[in-house]
Design a protein around this nucleic acid. Structure first.
Lengths: 329, 329
DNA sequence: CTGTTAGCGCCTTCAA
DNA sequence: TTGAAGGCGCTAACAG
């Protein structure tokens, strides 16, 4: 399966009758001193040979690979594909490529570490909550680890949604509609982000004099919401059910949905979290909490393109969230 | 933002008091001649320094990067995330990482080519239908381009679903239930895969004496199905509507769904294509056509792990499809 | 503007 | 079993 060896810059230089250095300069994207004559000859030679620079070899001297690692738990955890699609497009627009690393579990992280290999990427974006900042800095020989999972420390920049606003708005909406008793459906309580989120709901309930009937433990998935739904009304009927993920809310909705075309539960108001684009379909008209994806991605790109200098300490940047009303709210 | 330079194998060798060659051998995964004594010292030194081999530098000599490129149109086009998640996990299990390349349009491919760079990946998996085999072979300096989009030639291996079986079963199911008149909702007709698929439906209709009332042109998306749905019954009422993607069928279902909990259109039977995992939710109980994802991924991995030798010519491998009945069929 | 030189980090001869 | 040397493909630094 071996093709004839790819032409190197030496081949190009030889064919053009110049030194390798001149060929390198002529081929460079940035302006470098080369006479017009030789530049033309080099370019012609490169075209004739079908030459393409080997980025890996290049990176050995330039110390930059144009590679960004993106760490996720599972693909499904890209809670919003729109967000990820945008991110990928923007990174590629900047001439970089993405190494998508699926972590899946803390074990995987340790295995990764044990293997002792490291892609020396320019930066790492961490969505997965199975890795903390220090670990990722070790996994990749990168100075620029951007934490998006809440497990940041002061040594790496972080961007996190400011959930207080959106949660406050959602609970206020419920209160305004007369909700007095609520239940809360949560994800893995081990996650710091989730703990903070739960805290915000509790405070908002308190502020609006809403009684928290009960907290249910799911795992963010549709399946978990669906599974716990049948018991949801046991021991007190809530006026509203708040879920810390849209997927769980969808699972609950599928158990409680009543008449078409209303599609909402009759017994309680339902609030999700994430504002999945799926919710714009008629089948899941769930009121939710989301943030400005474009702004979120823009923040990440600013960090990638203008990496903070020095060994600074970092405070997390906040991206505002907002309540998005739909039929179930 | 610069951390102290990462330790190299020279640092390890120096600390262990051996030559770089010995350090290299000691650190190698495969068995190489090193005395137990020195091996221990090298390993200890590596651990002390937090040494991790630079895969990119390694690849310069070994000619293998352990990097696989995966080309997709948009993320949404990963018509099945389950498939992609499995693929990613399996590739990583083999010690490789994935560069996810979002192509988006034919323009992007040309831009990629124009830039003149090339990641010398070990292999490329092509889901995107914006690139043909020859182009991808040029994009990446790879001998192993696995085509999954139907745009293969004889020089690269290909795996494609054998859609004849699934489509045959679906149409037979409809015929058995008395369907006499059908409409067909398609995606981009420019795609070879789509043309073949349409041809299979036509032949199956003919075989079962089903009249094809009309063909509607969508673009695989929910939005397109939703948009064309209102006109679907104009000029003749079909007994069944076949869609070449589940997303379009979902869009149509949301326009025509009637009573809960039946959730299906009253006026016609509805058949999708892809067997998205979303269809297992109650909200979209669409009969569909799918294939064995695990088998599909297994085929890809066999090609990755045991790359065919020599300059052989390749005939596409077929993965069987099957009809998956649900409420709407 | 140009060519030479000296590496980047690693591995693989090769001779000892 | 070991170490020295050479080279993978490329570019920065340096003279000219």
């Amino acid at each position: 399966m071996r093709r004839k060896a790819a032409p190197t810059i030496s081949d190009v230089a030889a064919l053009a009758g110049v030194s390798r250095a001149v060929a390198s300069r002529a081929l460079s994207a940035s302006k470098r001193p080369v006479s017009g004559d030789k530049r033309d000859r080099v370019l012609a030679a490169a075209a004739e040979l079908g030459y393409r620079v080997n980025l890996l070899a290049q990176s050995l001297t330039t110390k930059t690979v144009n590679l960004v690692a993106v760490l996720v738990n599972h693909i499904h955890d890209l809670s919003d594909l729109d967000l990820f699609d945008l991110l990928l497009a923007e990174i590629q627009a900047g001439g970089r490529q993405v190494i998508l690393v699926r972590v899946g579990s803390t074990d995987k992280v340790e295995e990764f570490l044990r293997q002792g290999v490291a892609y020396h990427v320019d930066a790492a974006l961490v969505f997965s909550d199975f890795a903390d900042a220090a670990t990722v800095r070790r996994m990749f020989r990168s100075d620029l680890v951007i934490m998006l999972n809440g497990r940041h420390d002061h040594r790496s920049p972080a961007i996190i949604p400011d959930e207080a606003v959106g949660i406050g708005q959602a609970v206020a909406d419920a209160a305004a509609k007369g909700v007095k008793r609520a239940s809360l459906v949560t994800g893995r309580a081990s996650s710091l982000v989730e703990q903070a989120r739960i805290g915000l709901y509790r405070r908002a309930f308190q502020f609006h004099d809403i009684q928290l009937l009960r907290t249910w433990q799911g795992d963010y998935s549709y399946r978990s919401g669906h599974a716990l739904a049948p018991g949801l009304l046991d021991g007190g009927q809530p006026d509203a059910v708040f879920c810390t993920s849209d997927a769980m809310a969808m699972g609950i909705l599928d158990v409680f949905r009543t008449d078409f075309p209303d599609n909402r539960p009759a017994r309680f108001r339902l609030y999700g979290f994430d504002n999945l684009s799926l919710l714009d379909f008629e089948a899941y008209p769930i009121s939710s909490i989301g943030y400005d994806k474009a702004a979120y991605v823009a923040r990440m790109l600013r960090l990638l393109n203008e990496p903070p200098a020095g060994e600074g300490t970092f405070a997390p940047e906040l991206v505002p969230t907002r309540y998005v009303p739909r039929l179930t709210g």
